[in-house]
Amino acid sequence: MALTKDGLWDNNVVFSQLLALCPLLAVTGTATNGLGMGLASTAVLIASGLSISLLRNLIPPDVRIPAFVLVIALIVTLVDMAMNAWVHELHKVLGLFIPLIVTNCAILGRAEIFASKKPVAPSTYDGFIMGVGFTLALVALGAVREVLGAGTLFAGASILLGDAFKSIEMNIPAYDGMLLFALPPGGFMVLGFMLAGKRVLDKKMETWRQGRALQSDAPACHTV
């Protein structure tokens, strides 16, 4: 439960750690692109967590960081080749940002902080839930930018991801969008509002928890 809460909210790669902002802002012009990059990153996080946990007792501490980077680079190369083979259109759209997953600090960070110290099952789950949290952040940012910037949602999903995703494509009638949100400044603006919203929610949740704690600690009133 703690791992799930960490990955999705408390220690979210984007909203809490503020990592991977370069691909986040570069590929989230649409929700479809965000979903594709998120799924690719999740696959790398799962495979790297599993692999590094398996190898953790074989890697000398002095060379652990280069070894982790090598393992991650191998996995990213396989993911890149698989996307090129099976989702070629999405691969063309994401372009250089797929190989650049190697430089994602969140992946190396989880390898160093978690996978290198924990057994296989928790490490694999940690990679999965961190990837899900990252994917949700990418899709959320991409969805807001796409709706405000183009008046569509998951446009081209069936072309980029396959016919099974055609049902999620949406179009807002009589709205052509605002170009600002499709451009990098719009991405910074939306991200800023989303980060601020998370901070506000965190404060409200903390206030609510403190109120509940005070109520539970208060002495019960007895009527004589």
Rank of each mutant, 00 (worst) to 15 (best):
A155M: 06
P122K: 08
N104W: 06
V87D: 01
T103M: 13
V102R: 02
L160I: 07
R199L: 08
S158K: 10
G197N: 08
L100S: 07
A157P: 03
V87P: 00
I159P: 00
G131S: 07
A85E: 14
G192V: 03
E169F: 05
M83V: 01
G131T: 04
G192P: 06
Y175V: 04
G162D: 10
G162Q: 06
F165G: 02
G95L: 12
P119S: 11
L161R: 08
Y125R: 03
T207V: 10
Y125M: 13
M189T: 12
T152R: 10
R199N: 04
G156A: 13
V132E: 00
E112S: 12
L96F: 05
I159E: 11
E146F: 01
G142E: 08
G177I: 01
T152K: 07
T152Y: 02
E206K: 15
D202R: 10
M194K: 08
G197A: 15
M81T: 01
A182H: 10
C105G: 10
V87M: 07
L94V: 13
Y175D: 04
F134R: 00
T207H: 13
A121L: 13
A182L: 14
V200G: 04
R110H: 08
L183P: 04
L161T: 10
F165V: 10
V132Y: 01
M83K: 07
H88V: 02
H91I: 06
G142I: 14
A121S: 06
V190E: 05
L94Q: 02
V132L: 15
M194S: 11
W86Y: 15
T207P: 00
P185Y: 08
A115N: 02
P99W: 07
V139N: 03
F128E: 00
Y175Q: 00
G197H: 12
G109I: 05
A174F: 14
A164M: 12
H88W: 09
M178Y: 11
L100F: 11
R145I: 02
F134W: 06
L136Q: 07
F154T: 06
I159K: 06
A155D: 10
G197K: 12
E206W: 08
L94M: 07
V132H: 01
L153P: 01
P122D: 01
A82E: 07
G151W: 00
